[in-house]
Amino acid sequence: MSLSYTVQRSTRASQTSMSLTVVILIILIAAPWWAGRAELRLMVEIFYYLALAQMWSLLAGYGGLVSVGQQAFVGLGGYILFALAAFGGVHPIMALVLAGAITALIAMPTALVAFRLQGAYFAIGTWVIAEVFRLSFAQISALGGGSGMSLPASIVKSIASSRAGREHLVYWVALAIAVAAMALVFFLLRSRWGLAMTAIRDSEPASESLGVETYRTKFIVYVMAAGMTGLVGALIFLQKLRISPDAAFSVQDWTALVIFIVVIGGIGTIEGPILGTIIFFILREFASDWGSWYLILLGGIAVAVMLFAPKGLWGLITARYDVHLFPVGRRLIVNEEKSK
């Protein structure tokens, strides 16, 4: 009996789902023609939480970089947008893109500091870095110091000539950012960087001994995730119209809720954050008016999922049905042949 092997990337389910993804994407692009203003705004919010969740899942689930300081980059992106648009006279959409790029640049020296720490110390370190950013922005009086500032109405109106045009443009930008975040994770994981990252996650010393450039891999992933997070942050505060240090660098809004989404959805998958985002928004639509009970409910669900389904709800689904909508892994198919 001899065995032959083939390495397979996609399954029939994933091929079907890729074509389904294209259909869904077309429907979403057409949303301004079928959805109302409230739905569009809600979808913008869903898209930015989805993008944040994908970035956190990329860092923690694939790179093993458990950061609780992603709000540093959300806040930076938001503040850079406000500074460029309000003082630099840059068109808000252009400022959005620049905010992402500048955030990635600032993330480079940040990474040099954070990467001196490992594991739990890295997590705490990223939080401390975010607090440093919060306190620093609270000292910049041109940006309102601790009081914060509003984006002048004239600048918001300069995005497009009409209110509908403005809302549609922001919607498409948000959709593009969410798609870009998912595409970044998808293509990164299919590249050799992806392989290197998963190796680092499983054992950093072992992968280093096998010739993986651990530091460089981690650095590149961290900076890319920061840039994307900064872009999302700029979008968030373009929607909120007002920024202040506490709002911009809120650990609860931009990291804790994102971790919740990734944990209940399933860490280290592309599908998990999508499922997690959907569940989070359903919960929020129903329960956010319950006050403290809502937060207790979220915490309770997170604890229950961590105890009973450590790989998240998507992990439960794949364990049972073996579906992978986005083929990023490789699977070994063993073909058994009878030999004479």
Binding site: E45, K240, R242, S244, D246, S250, D253, S288, D289, G291
Partner: peptide, 12 residues
């Protein structure tokens, strides 16, 4: 609507 004492939530 409850702002949860949070300016982000108040805007939302």
């Amino acid at each position: 609507k409850d702002s949860q004492s949070n300016p982000n939530r108040a805007a939302d």
